[in-house]
């Protein structure tokens, strides 16, 4: 039942706790369609950012949550197939390596008490250095407020890139959602119908960005650009 767990030293026990939580959500919450994605929401916009590890999606979702967005999750997008809504899961954000300094900096510019939001740093974990950040108070207050998804953005981090919004086809977005889902194959038909509906109702694009600030600008720009077409749905 728990063969997958590698024992870790007690001083990085928090990391074990996080891995345990993740494992339980992944194996026991199959009633939700699960995306490996950052998910945030604001004023009727439900944004899914599916991506592999290292794309910066966790940092991006966390970053957006300190700029007016409600954090659903930095890596576990949960979709309720009955109500057709995204379900918030605002547990502590797991920041890794370089993104720790980035987020401290990001949060400190809007909140003097930022130090209270970060745990100590855990060095030498299987994923390098890890630090946990408390989600914004508003995200925790709204943890029972669900949102219908209507925006899919595939984030690509490239330190040398010129920030850019690139169009992608809906078939591509469809497949990226399928690939990002941990339990698409288990749920089967209902998952196929759900993703078809999400893509049908969503505007989709890819953004390439060199840093968090540019990424947030691109997201806001795409939200603005698509506000009319989303209004029609």
């Amino acid at each position: 039942m728990s063969d997958e767990f590698v024992p870790l030293p007690a001083k990085i026990g928090m990391v074990s706790l996080e891995m345990g939580l993740n494992w339980h959500v992944a194996s026991d919450c199959k009633q939700y369609l699960m995306f490996h994605a950052g998910v945030v929401a604001k004023e009727g916009v439900g944004l899914i950012m599916p991506a592999a590890s290292g794309s910066g999606k966790s940092t991006l979702a966390a970053g957006l949550s300190y700029r007016g967005w409600q954090l659903h999750s930095d890596e576990f997008g949960l979709y309720d197939m009955n109500s057709q809504e995204l379900v918030p899961y605002p547990r502590a954000v797991s920041l890794k390596n370089e993104s720790i300094a980035v987020m401290r900096d990001w949060v400190s510019s809007v909140d003097d008490k930022y130090n209270e939001y970060f745990t100590e740093e855990f060095h030498g974990t299987p994923k390098g250095t890890i630090c946990y950040m408390r989600p914004h108070k508003d995200s925790i207050d709204k943890m029972h407020v669900k949102t219908r998804p209507n925006l899919i953005i595939l984030p690509i981090f490239d330190a040398t890139a010129t920030p850019e919004i690139r169009p992608i086809t809906k078939a591509m977005a469809f497949f990226r959602l399928v690939l990002s889902s941990a339990n698409y194959g288990d749920i089967g038909k209902d998952a196929f119908l759900a993703i078809s509906r999400i893509i049908e109702e969503s505007e989709v694009c890819e953004i390439i960005y060199p840093n968090l600030e540019e990424a947030v600008k691109l997201v806001e720009e795409f939200v603005e650009k698509t506000s009319e077409s989303r209004g029609q749905l």
Binding site: T169, K170, A171, F174, F175, F192, S196, I199
Partner: peptide, 8 residues
């Protein structure tokens, strides 16, 4: 699911 450039 039929899209402009492909069928799924």
């Amino acid at each position: 699911s039929e899209w402009e450039d492909a069928s799924v």
